[in-house]
Design a binder for these strands. Structure first.
Lengths: 202, 202, 202, 202
DNA sequence: TATGAATGAGTCTTCATTCAT
DNA sequence: AATGAATGAAGACTCATTCAT
């Protein structure tokens, strides 16, 4: 039996902590999400948290990135698997608030976003993450331009930004009031937007 | 010589405090926007702030509402003054991040939004405010449907929500990285979206 | 019309403030009896209070003494008017908790008493006031010894202290729970005690 | 090696804090007994106090109850051990101000009492504790009635209240000025009162 | 005199972080 | 690796007192 723990153990504990962190934030808000509360949610002592993360800030950042990256990964999968005009829509489906879990994710990202305002370092990090989404959309749009599905005159990056903006906006509103955006409304909105994009000549 | 102070004095002081609050939030982030820091920004003692607001939470809420309402007022003006297809675009211009001041406002609203997550009372209040924007757009869309500029088959409220979502999304991205959205990009995005709306048949 | 106010105006305002102070203490407890609350009760500004009293401590002391002295005055009257064995009982009646007003007074004195603990200056002042009661009882006892109603062997001051102790004890208990001491119980207790005193040989 | 601390450690720390609290109150008065001062007395940081007590109010209540209960326990012992007519006197001795320690306790209870005025919740709690004393006296009086030492016509609870009232009154006066009540005076007073009680026919 | 806005030291309380066990 | 007691700086808030009007 080896003395030291596997790398995996360490990482999976960090993920477990991140999940507890998110649960607490959703329940109590970011302001009241103290380390003690998260430890209680985990069923462990605060010392554990500080053992796996040097500071609380690092813990929050890790948690946010984990949420973000999980969604990004699935969106990348959708990009890889999709074909034809449906591809973009399939990608957005992984980022939009369509069920309880994705609404929770939107809320979390909104909460973290608010924290980043006025904190240049965090804002830069957030912006870098956002770019991953945008570039992925841009890449697919470039693909679609090659097949003529999307007009070659459009700027893939800008169109990517536009799609992400619409996603973020819906996410933000659904975060405040999930009942204002039914899954059908969400899908219809995105679908119509993408349709118009693929029809657009300029 | 009047004994008591004028009502106006009291209210204008509250606005002055709200402006200082916003300045501090933009500079230091919401977490570090303590009452002491805001007092320093105002050039007064912390006691003053508590004299004009019972709690810090009330102060923040007032500040946010003030920012929101100022923009809403201008947007309503644009709705009243505008004519024809340009009307919707003119309205969005008052809410989009097009210059330093409006970018600051977007940042503030993003910061406050994050605070509301996990706080049902705040979320409800925020949602009520958001509805003001949406209803205003819906009203104008209804007008445009009467003149045939917009298809009568569209649901004004849903279309209002969609416009607001796009605005919020752009605002959110510009909050993180203003350079990613030039004023021209912003306008073009909004313009094209509204164009497609007015062309839309379903 | 003379410029300055009468001494009486000044004093009667101080009494008015003292009464408001007592009302607030009874309602909110001594800890929460701030100057602002008292001003509100008076229907005036805090400035007025500081005009008539240099400090809050002075205001509290004045209020307590006023309550105390009013009762003492009536007790002295009872001493002057009473005759024979009834005299002592009549005196105690002015100090005991027998109705709403006197229960309120007992509560106030209890509250002030608690404040004096750990404050040598206040304790000395309070002790001096208490002596007034005791000496009055002692004087009457001396009278009663002259007529043979009370044994000459008893120490008038000590007996005075004992009577006051019993009064204070009943007052203290009635302050906490007025229902535990019906007026009849109070009177019977005091009456029996004084009876035994007048019968006592040593 | 046990992971968690023993229950005893936690409770004994609470008692240690309570003792420090009392020392500070006696020295500085209740108003000036801040958490910082108590921490200084303990030789620890303020955080420790909040670790063992959720609020300052809880800390004060615990301290008062501890003082009260310690005396009550000894009084109950005296009730259990005593025989015949001496029993009641032995019980009162545990509650009366007869030496430095008991005078300190009387002062503390006086200080806490003052705090309770105007605070219904605290008053109710205090009244419940007082009843413990009274019931204990009543129980012993009932015993003595069975042996004919005390007249069966007397109401045990009322007589218990009367004894407690006298004790409280003496305690209250000794709190203000300990020199006014020598131990001999205290004992003689109580002794004579109890004597008269046991002689009483009605 | 009277006002009540302003002050700022002081209050309790929270909390991320450290550290002995 | 884990515990949770201890730290102490920072937090929001209170309040007696002052002072310009």
């Amino acid at each position: 039996m080896p003395r030291g723990r596997r790398k995996g153990d360490h990482d999976s504990k960090r993920e477990e902590i991140a999940d507890a962190t998110c649960k607490v934030i959703l329940r109590s808000g970011i302001e009241k999400s103290g380390i003690a509360e998260i430890a209680r949610e985990m069923g462990c002592s605060t010392g554990v948290l500080m053992h796996y993360f040097k500071t609380k800030a690092e813990m929050l950042l890790y948690s946010k990135n984990l949420m973000f990256d999980r969604a990004h990964e699935r969106m990348k999968q959708a990009a890889a698997n999709g074909h034809g005009p449906e591809r973009l829509l399939a990608m957005t489906r992984e980022l939009l608030p369509l069920d309880a879990a994705s609404i929770a994710r939107c809320r979390l990202l909104t909460a973290f976003m608010g924290l980043a305002i006025g904190n240049p370092a965090l804002m830069k990090l957030q912006d870098k993450r956002d770019l991953l989404h945008i570039k992925q959309f841009a890449a697919v749009i470039t693909d679609l331009q090659a097949t003529g599905t999307v007009s070659a005159k459009l700027d893939p990056m800008l169109e990517g930004r536009r799609i992400c903006a619409l996603i973020d906006g819906i996410a933000s509103q659904a975060a405040t009031n999930p009942r204002s955006w039914s899954p059908a409304d969400v899908e219809a909105t995105m679908s119509r937007y993408l349709q118009s994009l693929m029809t657009s000549a300029a």
